[in-house]
Nucleic acid binder design. Structure first.
Length: 720
RNA sequence: GGGCGAUUAGCUCAGUUGGUAGAGCGUCACAUUGACGUUGUGAAUGUCAGAGGUUCGAAUCCUCUAUCGCCCACCA
């Protein structure tokens, strides 16, 4: 029996080994692919989805880091030039509003009191200060990220990339400024993109009424207050009921406001819905705006940015909130006996995802990306939408699980021009400058750098945060410069993220990369699900069921948490995470530790392998089969299966069966050497196999079982 | 309104291309002085949501139904 190293005599204590081990890895330089030994002809690249600078680690981050780190470690051990690149996101609106609130609480001042320049300084300071929190929490998960390449969506290099992209698209006519109906968030005081809205079912009342007694056609609306902005009534061209009125114009006095209504025919109107006639309010409805375009109607805006009525002849209405104005108008309709019907309906109310405010559709002059506009792209006529579709149809990018490809296509097919300007300060300011020549003539200049001359004024708005994160796979590698990194590591191999940002982010990255680089941003997309509590409920502060990864790793060890997030968790499925599950993998870590203790104690006193007895060889061969199986799972992104297989083999086969039977032979000195050789070989190879999943305990054990020539387990070849 | 997913042991879920159902937790019984009680051995529990079809054979493929969940949509 061999004397055990002191550390092995004690139980495994994750909390005391994890930080020192991470330091050893980081100091080794092997997180940086430039320092990896061997030929490594093929690269393997993963860009970390950048967490918000001001955020703290949650279970969603934990699952993302566990999956990516496991794959990255696997590839590194398999001889790839492996790059996993970290970064953080400035998260424009989110960050600005945190700082705004803070300042308001402490100093009672708004951002306008403070001024743009000073405000930006403060937000930036705050962002960079809090950045360290999330970064050190990412480290604590064992993430083997190349910190030498750390990027930030708002740093100088990324800002250059953003301005370069903007100008390129502007010059190609793909970015334009236009007056359109946008989603206005009255609470956040900014426009938001279609994807930043969500809808909620609410009960509302559908009112059927006439504008005035001498108006021939009744209309229906859930928002009668917008009707003071009506300019037309549209009916279906085939509708016999209304044919005679088409083309006529009526002057009405609606709730004290004179309105001019033209009767028009448009096929967008459904005969069978409501009265079959649609009151057209171009300024406050997307559909109506489109009808306006077709019929050359005027636009009458009656609601302002604060969701209040304005500009009306009836002074009582001006300044009223839309909901109050609604009551006022319904009351007026009743009094005038114009209200024909009221019915309760369930309607989908559009809300701003972030602020929760009811979206007010407003016509605004904003910047857009034209997704349907044909342009010449590397000698071929195409559209941005077509580029996005092609990448996935041609399998240049595959999505796991596959069913999300359908979701992706559906989204792409229904995509409308993307509104990219935001009325907030924190973010990439739009690289467009204006020089007012005269009231009708303003010169516009779009460039990477400001034009020379005092009279140029830069556009006030900033870009949607997804514009800069959309460039992430290549802006992090040095684009627009032609760098060695870009040539070596792009297209990246894997994008791993939550399925909730398939549209926001994944699709936008495909758009920018195929457009600017003529190649996909990544070959594979792996989408994980949401982490839920043990009962399957969303984790939320109000429910008090939030599991904090930092507490969990303290309590059970990082390896245990990682395993609990991987085993049985296939792509696309939500994960239910309870502490019992994590505890089970803490027990597993203990099992590994003790099995090692036994093998070291009973076998490593003889260093030379002997030829295995046939019965031992059979066991070894069976393990090799299992190992091949696990390798195959990892190569095909089936982490949920691979992790379970090694867990099962180690515990049930290796410990309960192989060790138990060979133990007897070793103690009884019966063909002892073959048994010892078998145990040593199996332990070594299993520790290697376990390393991507459970990096800390395996690296710690490696210290006791490695051969003299061996390097860190981190870079030990996968197949021995 | 359209689309997608789920439904498997008391609970949470695996089950890769169709070959007589698996794991963890829990339950019960037993064992154990030397790797480990954060253990071992054994046991019980399933008409794989329901109905129909394809097949020599279906949890797995097809059709329909039910329940739950998610996503998308400008029905005023």
């Amino acid at each position: 029996m061999k004397q055990l190293p002191a550390q092995l005599t004690k139980p495994f204590d994750a909390s005391s080994v994890e930080n020192p081990l991470y330091e050893i890895w980081e100091k080794s330089g092997y997180f940086n692919p430039d320092n990896l030994q061997g030929e490594r002809k093929e690269s393997y690249t993963v860009i970390l989805p950048p967490p918000n600078v001001t955020g703290t680690l949650h279970t969603g981050h934990a699952i993302m880091l566990a999956i990516q780190d496991t794959l990255v470690r696997f590839k590194r051990m398999n001889g790839y030039r492996t790059l996993w690149l970290p970064g953080t996101d400035h998260a424009a609106i989110a960050t600005q509003s945190v700082v705004e609130k803070e300042i308001y609480k402490k100093e009672g001042k708004s951002r306008h009191d403070i001024g743009r320049e000073e405000m930006l300084k403060r937000i930036n300071t705050f962002a960079l200060e809090s950045q360290n929190t999330i970064l050190s929490q990412i480290r604590s998960m064992g993430s083997s990220l190349d910190w030498s390449r750390l990027a930030f969506t708002l740093d100088d290099k990324r800002s250059l990339a953003v301005r370069t992209m903007f100008k390129k698209m502007y010059d190609d006519g793909l970015i334009y400024r236009g007056l359109r109906i946008v989603n206005w968030d009255p609470k956040g005081q900014t426009t938001i993109s279609d994807d930043e809205t969500e809808s909620e079912e609410r009960k509302g009342i559908m009112y059927t009424f006439k504008y005035s007694h001498d108006f021939p056609i009744p209309i229906s609306s859930t928002r009668p207050e917008t009707k003071v902005g009506d300019v037309a009534v549209a009916v279906h061209p085939d509708d016999e009921r209304y044919k005679e009125y088409i083309g006529k114009t009526y002057e009405c006095n609606f709730a004290g406001c004179p309105i001019t209504i033209k009767i028009i025919a448009d096929t967008a109107v459904e005969k069978d819905f409501g009265t079959g006639a649609l009151g057209v309010t171009p300024a406050h409805s997307q559909t109506d705006w489109e009808i306006k375009e077709r019929h050359d109607l005027p636009v009458r805006q009656v609601i302002n940015e604060y969701a209040k009525m304005y500009g009306l002849a009836n002074e009582e209405l001006n300044g009223k909130k839309v909901t109050d104005a609604r009551e006022y108008i319904v009351e007026w309709l009743r009094k005038e006996n114009l209200l024909i019907k009221e019915e309760e309906v369930v309607q989908n109310v559009p809300l701003a995802q972030r602020s929760g405010a009811v979206i007010e559709p407003l016509p605004k002059l904003q910047w857009f990306i034209a997704v349907n506009k044909p342009f010449s792209h590397f000698g071929k006529e195409t559209t941005l939408k077509e580029l996005m579709r092609e990448a996935v149809i041609d399998k240049k990018t595959t999505i796991l699980p596959e069913r999300f490809e359908k979701v992706y296509f559906h989204w792409v097919d229904n995509l409308r021009d993307w509104c990219i300007s935001r009325q907030i300060w924190y973010g990439h300011r739009i690289p467009v400058w204006y020089k007012i020549q005269s009231t009708e003539n303003t010169e516009i200049h779009c460039d990477i750098n400001p034009p020379v001359g005092e009279e140029w004024v830069q556009d006030e708005d900033t870009l949607d945060t997804w514009f800069s994160s959309g460039l992430w796979t290549f802006s992090t590698l040095g684009w627009p410069d032609t760098t060695k990194d870009l040539a070596t590591y792009h297209p990246t191999d894997l994008l791993e993220t939550g399925h909730d940002i398939l549209f926001f982010w994944v699709a936008r990255m495909i758009l920018f990369s195929t457009y600017a680089l003529h190649e996909v941003p990544f070959k594979h997309v792996y989408l994980h699900g949401l982490v839920r509590d043990a009962q399957g409920r969303k984790m939320s502060k109000s429910l008090g069921n939030v599991l904090d990864p930092r507490e969990l790793t303290q309590k059970y060890g990082t390896d245990a948490l990682r395993m609990s997030l991987l085993v049985g968790n296939g792509p696309g499925n939500d994960v239910k995470l309870g502490e019992d599950k994590i505890k089970a993998y803490k027990n597993f870590a203990n099992k590994i530790w003790n099995a090692t203790r036994f093998v070291v104690e009973r076998t490593l006193d003889h260093e030379t392998d002997v030829e295995l007895l046939p019965e031992d060889q059979i066991i070894y061969d069976a393990w090799r089969e299992k190992h091949k199986d696990i390798t195959d799972d990892l190569e095909n992104y089936r982490l949920h299966l691979g992790s379970e297989k090694i867990y099962d083999y180690f515990w049930k086969t290796f410990c309960d069966d192989i060790i138990e039977t060979r133990k007897v032979r070793i103690l009884e000195n019966n063909n002892k050497e073959s048994a010892q050789t078998l145990l040593v070989k199996l332990l070594r190879e299993q520790i290697i196999t376990l390393h991507p999943f459970m990096p800390f305990i395996t690296e710690e054990i490696w210290k006791f079982i490695k051969k003299d020539a061996d390097d860190l387990l981190l870079v030990t070849p996968w197949s021995q």
